[in-house]
């Protein structure tokens, strides 16, 4: 980075680059800014005032209306989203790490075949799985339960792919050999030595899967009828469909949408460094 030969760029191309990037940044940030402004307004001001300017500050009233609606169902949806995404991504990361680690570090017959089956799995559209899964789950009676959404969510072929790539890069064979010589079992080596070396990679896998589950909509929509099991996405979708009849719901949809994206955005910005370390480790080494 620092040892480049300095090349004088014309003022024009510098300015053009900066202007283009600013325009794009506005495009990416405008809807989020609009949502923040709209979430602070009373319902009556939504249509009557300009969308990008603040008017009466009504955020706290909006929040109490939102969380008070239908016996606090929104809080329940938020909790459900956290349960599905945090637990699902945690379990998913662990099993992806075990599998990717074995595929990277152990030599056995059929290894490449298993890996190509997993790679094929990356290309399978998950929405194509949702309908047949629904039929299978109705036969076993777990449709309309937490498990119906949780169980399919833990499987991430992409996570295994990342785990294999990262493991090859981050865990040297010599360390495994010396741990074996010290008499440590494979699982002990994995949990006490390898996992530590894989930490940045695990954070990346966790983030990918967390976002995938948090954002998932089709699977819960197919699986769940009980409102109390909905994640935020499905709940807000249902509310949004009712705003034509119940126009007061509009403000709650807006405030709810803001609540649903703020925690993830914060986590993203905080973990940015981790996230990029993991990505870089995968592509450089």
């Amino acid at each position: 980075m620092n040892n480049q030969t300095p090349i004088r760029e014309s003022l024009f191309s510098r300015t053009a680059a900066l202007a283009l990037m600013f325009l794009l940044a506005i495009y990416f940030l405008l809807p989020i800014y609009f949502l923040i402004v709209a979430a602070t307004k009373p319902q009556g001001d939504l249509a009557s005032t300009f969308g990008l300017a603040f008017s009466h500050f009504n955020l706290f009233e909006n929040l109490s209306t939102l969380f008070g609606r239908s016996d606090g169902i929104f809080g329940r949806w938020a909790l459900n989203s956290v349960i599905y995404a945090v637990l699902g991504a945690a379990v998913g990361t662990l099993i992806s790490a075990l599998c990717g680690y074995a595929l990277a570090k152990f030599k056995f017959r059929g290894r490449e075949f298993l890996f190509s089956v997993i790679l094929g799995g990356v290309l399978v559209p998950t929405t194509a799985l949702a309908l047949p899964l629904f039929l299978l789950f109705s036969a076993t009676g777990i449709v309309n339960t937490y498990l119906a959404v949780f169980l399919p969510s833990i499987v991430s072929p992409f996570g295994v792919y990342l785990a294999r790539v990262f493991t090859s890069a981050a865990v040297p064979d010599e360390i495994l050999e010396s741990a074996r010589l010290d008499g440590a079992g494979e699982f002990r080596t994995f949990f006490s030595v390898s996992l530590k070396l894989m930490t940045p990679a695990l954070v990346t896998i966790f983030l990918f899967q967390f976002v995938g589950i948090w954002n998932n909509f089709f699977l819960p929509m197919v699986m769940l009828q009980k409102e109390s099991l909905f994640p935020i996405t499905l709940g807000l979708f249902e509310w949004n469909g009712q705003t034509a009849r119940v126009s007061l719901l509009q403000e709650s949809v807006i405030t709810g949408a803001l609540i649903s994206i703020v925690p993830v955005i914060i986590v993203f910005i905080l973990l940015q460094r981790f996230w990029r370390t993991g990505l870089a480790a995968g592509s450089i080494k």
């Binding site: 809807p31 954002n215 909509f217 935020i232 994206i261 993830v264 986590v267």
Partner: peptide, 8 residues
Amino acid sequence: PYAVPGVI
């Protein structure tokens, strides 16, 4: 935007 669910 990647942090924002498609529905939202």
